[in-house]
């Protein structure tokens, strides 16, 4: 039991498990992914680096192949914060063992065509709206006519 509480506290960056629970750690009871991330992987892992969003990347080489690198999201206490779209390209490559260099120690140059990572905007106001959606600005204008603009004096 003490291993689990210690892992929970470490995963959420807290000193004691009480502090961790009061800061959202209780959500492991309803979110299996969070519990898995914090509790199952945490003991004995190495913190490899932190990306610009604050996501932390861990490695533990003596576990099962394919489960030895993982990410703990910056907003891990909120299930909406566990967003793979927030993982930058270089860390994505490291997580999936496409590259073996540690992006934290490597000068990664983004290609010119790379777009800025903004994460998943589902359920937010900036989410994608199709052309005819009523949430589009021009659709909220109910006027079906165009008023004449007088010439400037």
């Amino acid at each position: 039991m003490s291993g689990v509480t210690k892992a929970l506290a470490q995963g959420l960056g807290k000193q004691t498990w009480r502090e961790a629970v009061s800061n959202g750690g209780w959500k492991v009871l309803i979110d299996g992914n969070l519990g898995s991330t914090l509790v199952e992987h945490q003991p004995g892992a190495t913190l490899v680096g932190t990306d610009k969003h604050g996501n932390r990347y861990f490695e533990k080489m003596d576990t099962q192949v394919g489960r030895n690198r993982w990410v703990v999201y910056a907003k891990a206490s909120d299930y909406r914060g566990q967003d793979p779209a927030n993982v930058p390209a270089e860390w994505h490559g490291w997580l999936h063992a496409s590259v073996d260099v540690n992006p934290a120690n490597h000068d990664f140059t983004a290609p010119i065509y790379a777009s800025n990572i903004v994460g998943n905007s589902t359920t937010t106001v900036s989410r994608y709206q199709p052309k005819g959606s009523w949430f589009k600005e021009h659709k909220r204008n109910w006027l079906k006519y165009q008023t004449w603009t007088p010439p400037k004096a």
């Binding site: 079906k144 006519y145 165009q146 004449w148």
Partner: peptide, 11 residues
């Protein structure tokens, strides 16, 4: 043209 250049308010 019935929805273009309309006079819709007094000026």
């Amino acid at each position: 043209a019935l929805r273009l250049q309309r006079l819709s308010q007094p000026l």
